[in-house]
Amino acid sequence: MSEEKKPKRRDFLYTASYAVGAVGIGAAVWPLIDQMNPDSSVKALASTEVDVSLVEPGKSITVLWRGKPVFIKRRTQEEISEARAVNLDDLIDPEKDEDRAKNPEWLVMLGVCTHLGCVPLEDKGDYNGWFCPCHGSHYDTSGRIRKGPAPENMQIPKYEFVSSNIIKIG
């Protein structure tokens, strides 16, 4: 009877020790991993406010946000109509222009080609939008991929107009 009991008590002590030890090792390892996450000074720069009052229709500016370029384009009526007229079936990555530019006059998107990350050139390409020289991806006036190896449209970041002239990105 006592022989039966012995292993149980012994196992409990060892099992408890291992379990408590494992918790400690986990708690000790976490800071070593978390320290590589963005630190608080980087996170403080996670949003940027941009004054767009000087941007004329048809023109665009490029700003740096989280280390990447963001294209802010003030589109002409022609460019907007062109974007809206496109049939979704013709798109490699179907997405409505209305969903990409809530305020149709302003297109705010990450200027990073979704193929391998180069910065596309403005006013180039077969679709009146952007053209990426690295591997030949063509984007339209809504920044959507139309031809070439890129799989997705240029990404729209989180943004809002905090006043009529100031866009807060991120």
Binding site: R10, L13, A16, S17, V20, G21, G24
Partner: peptide, 16 residues
């Protein structure tokens, strides 16, 4: 507190 608890567990494991 954790280290004290684990030390005690280790102590008794050692004795055992």
């Amino acid at each position: 507190i954790y280290l004290l608890i684990l030390s005690i567990l280790a102590y008794f494991s050692m004795k055992r």
